[in-house]
Design a protein around this nucleic acid. Sequence first.
RNA 1: GGACGGCUAGCUCAGUUGGUUAGAGCGACUGGUUUACACCCAGUAGGUCACAGGUUCGAGUCCUGUGCCGUCCACCA
Length: 907
Amino acid sequence: MEKAYQPKEVEDRLYHKWEQDGSFQGRPDGQKPAYSIVIPPPNVTGVLTMGHVLNNTIQDILARRARQKGHATLWLPGTDHAGIATQTKVEQQLRKEGKSKYDLGREGFLEHAKEWRDKHGGIILKQLRKLGCSCDWERTVHTLDEDYSHAVLEAFVRLFNNGYVYRGKRMVNWCPVSRTALSDEEVIMKPQNGKLFKIRYELTDAPGEYLYVSTTRPETIMGDVALAIHPEDERWPALKGRKVRRPLQTAEIPIIADDAVEKDFGTGMLKITPAHDPLDFEIGQRHDLEIIDVFNEDGTLNELAGPDFAGMDRFEARKATVEKLREQGDLIDEEDHANNVGFSERADVPIEPRLSEQWFLRYPRVEEAKRAVAEGMIRYFPERWTKTYLHWLENIQDWCISRQLWWGHRIPVWYRKGENRRDPKNWHVSVDGPADPENWEQDEDVLDTWASSWLWPIATMGWPNEEAMKEQGLDYFYPTSALVTGPDIIFFWVARMIMAGLEFKGEPVDPTTTLSDEEIRKRIPFRDVYFTGIIRDAKGRKMSKSLGNSPDPLDLIEKYGADGLRHGIMSIAPKGQDIRFSEERIEQGRNFCNKLWNVSRFRQMADEQTKESSLDEIIKRINPAQLNQDDHAILLRLVETLDEVDRLYVEYEFNSALQSIYRFFWNDLCDWYVENSKSRMRGGDGKSTCLAVQDLCLRQVLLLLHPVTPFITEELWKVLGFSEGQSIQWINPGTGSELSVAMKSAGIVLDPAALEQMLAVRELVTSMRALKADRNLANNSKVEFSYLADEDRAALLEAHKTSILSSVGAAGLHRVLEAPSGMPALVTDFGSVYLDLSSGIDVEAEKKRLAKEVAHLEGLISSVEKKLSNASFTDKAPPQVVEGARKQLSGNQEKLKETQAALAALQ
RNA sequence: GGACGGCUAGCUCAGUUGGUUAGAGCGACUGGUUUACACCCAGUAGGUCACAGGUUCGAGUCCUGUGCCGUCCACCA
């Protein structure tokens, strides 16, 4: 074995072997319970980020743990076509070549985009393999695959037939760069520092009299069709019905009253531009106002804006209109103004509210989706996200699902050529299209990407094809066991998947039918949802490409190994809390692997051969008669740890589980048990039992760790001879109680007192080491100690003497019956220990130290005494608490006595 | 404007239903290669648990309020 663990070779070799053995294959197996996870499909052309590392490590842990526990496990991978993101990239690249998508035409562009995807796509799936992800790669799905696309269209058609889908001219969020509509969820509100312009509008029946309006968007004035006031605003009693002159593209427009106007904002008067503001649009509807759209789809102004501004970009036009108004004397004032502006998530430019003809979806199964989560049929971890989820569902708005893009699932609606598209009589809606295609033309738009990925849990398993569903085990694996994702897509994806599952899984149901709880349980796409935190950099900023603060996970794997990275990231990922990334933690992950490697190496070096041995055989090698207190203690801790980790995994408390394993493995096993075993291994009867105990502990640690660090545990599993030809992937770590039963039947009954005794001995050893260290004595300098203790404790101490001497680095430990004079001392639960120094010590320093200790103990004692003399405490507190206080008091009183004695001995 | 989360050692965080003397890792400092590991071992220092009230025999933990940081939601031009 190498001196240090070398992950690279091991990882490549084992991953290859696992794949070859078909270890990751997820197939229905009637003999086993099912466990399934569908991956949140990353963008097909994306690369691995730290967020993916966290997310997928968790999924891998769940999948691997399920395999160990004997489930037929499916972790289904795949990618998303990422409509806008991908199309934007492809267009950018075309632009570099001096071309546009229109040069290629729709067919040509799609061809080109596919080539581009195939060339740059799928990198992330390779990277996931490097991370060790145990996905069933044979089942990889892409949202533009033929079968998947079919499912997407089928869903659309069904929703249409049930009246959930409608077409309408409505206000949408328009991205002038991508030139498409967006859903509300794709709009990011950002605070902006803009200007508020005060503009005057002249009353046409009273020349020279003006009304004043504040606006942030003077470039839309040409689209004004009215001025509005609040009906109860007493400042303007007689304005309604009169008219004003629009200062740009001059025209007469009416003054109306509408209670949507805020009296207290600005001048209390609002200009109404129905084409360019959602609120204005609503008011316009109420008052039957004209709609004048002065913008083109790319955000430039059109001819309706007038010759002065037509063709200008909207931001340029803002400046130009202000200038013009200033010239005309209509600009009264401008002041700084902070407001929120919606930005396009992808293109990062302000969106335009725009009136356009789009397809909308009224969400199906909203009430059932609420119930599913509110009543715990789907459980959220951490639970608090249920509130966010329910709040969104309670205020849910219809979903604009059409996108003016080419890259995606084309909407399966055809219009009769030459006829009015608005009239549903001229529509054909089906998956396969009309029988006489020559008379029809298909809708040009595609569906929102999320309107395909919301089907992910069912469409990746064959839906809606009966045969495929059977073959792929939809009914076997569905509902999936857990979903692991970020809370940032709770609306985009999680909520929508729940509604899609409720609507589509199982027999179709009428829109007016409400699903029963039983039916909901069958239809929900997952039982548990684990929301990860967001990975931030050391300064707490979100990791992003533009900031360049995100390390490349592949570099980290290169440096620390995949296991090191996985261990590191999991150890800092508390449930649902954001995560401060620090490379040091990854380093610790690597160090942990190295420690595991080295203690195994140490075990290998013991002359006793490790042969292939099962759990039963290891237990058989333990001779109950040879077990000492250390053996009892470590085995008790092992049993405890097995149970604790089992519970923590169930509760998705990964970092706590790791911490628990760490404590057992590093502090108890390596630092204490293995160190102590060194003296036993020099000879004596206990050696083979001691090695067997080591084997048992190591074996269980490997099993517990395997989901987190799959590579090194598989490697050591074989090296240490636990495998018997079988991969660690299929071995159940079992619980502590199960292990206890197995040991009991081999005659091993653990002494529950051993743990406490071990801790007491450790405390004594620590004190002895501290006595040495305080005087700068080297660890290995052989010094003499004396101790003062009662009969019981002395007996225990004598029993552990050999290991104490070797742990401390001492030559002797002698019992004395009274405090020896002139020696530095420490008082422990075990009694007092004195360091025998032939040379003189710094008596004053010792006195000071002991006096400080006396004062500390006196403080403790008086506070407990006070508590105990308080009748309401002794009456009301539970007996074990009172008993604990008494015990503490007597313990401390004894310690105080001994410390005082040690102090006196120095005088 | 509303909702949620965070505030515990220099740093990053544990602390389960209130209950002995609030913990870990890193960093700092001191010392160390005895049959694994310097990616290691031993030891030391370091905390008014954000603040103010309240409930209780007892509060880091429960309640009320305040402050700061963060996230999400919301049509104030």
